[in-house]
Design a protein around this nucleic acid. Sequence first.
DNA 1: ATTATTGTTGGTAG
DNA 2: TCTACCAACAATAA
Length: 266
Amino acid sequence: MPELPEVEHTRTKLVAWGLEHATIARVTTSDALIVKPRTPRAFVRGLEGRKVARLERKGKWLRLLLDDDQRLFIHLGMTGWFEDDAEERRFERVRFTITKGRRTKTILYTDSRRWGRMVLADEDVRAWSTLGPDPLAEGIDEGRLVARLAKRKKQSIKEALMDQSVLAGVGNIQAIEALWKARVDPRSPAAAVDASLMKRIASGLRWTIERTLADLAENEMSGESPFRIYGHKGEPCPRCRVTLVRFDLGGRTTTMCPGCQLPAKV
DNA sequence: ATTATTGTTGGTAG
DNA sequence: TCTACCAACAATAA
């Protein structure tokens, strides 16, 4: 379930389970797609016995710094999820046993669709080092963003927000919710968004990220959808009551309110 | 059977 | 190097 808020929530969970400063005693996997090195045995061998020095997040990626200077990069793909001390799960792909002093804990990774990745490397992978600023950790510099998007005359503002090198961690849902909050038509050309509009979008992003995070802390995915318009096509806009519509934009389904989300003009 | 899915990457072309 | 576009990846749930 991974956009920035879900991944941040995952990091919080992993920290709460004591992964930081713990020793990875045992790793079990047979999944040669998710794991890299592709040979599960090599992956396991590289991890077992290592101590986790630090657990970081940037955008939708997690980075574990290990005591031998290797790094484990984790991306949850579309359906990746961590649980602790759980029984064998239907879509279980990787299982870690960690120890800290006398305490032992099991952390398992499930991923039905198998788009998640766990990459063990001795330096930063491209996907990590090309990430733009993280809106939650580093804040949003509206002026820099406007300048960055000035040449994107064909690309929509929504696609631009989802470009991980522009902002790290914004995905389909957070982009939809933020643009609704900012009252901006997601199809507006990125280059047409000026500083004052970008301010509204930035505050929309902060708003949806904080809300989603708070909902995760409270409900851990159960309960009803915390989203205001994502997944609500055909229902009235919570703000202006006009019926919400859904369409394809750059290959991703997009929900918007045709009543109160206005196009940015060049 | 059909449709939709909260993501990234690698290729091509300009 | 940057922008733009597209197909591919895998496997489910409704």
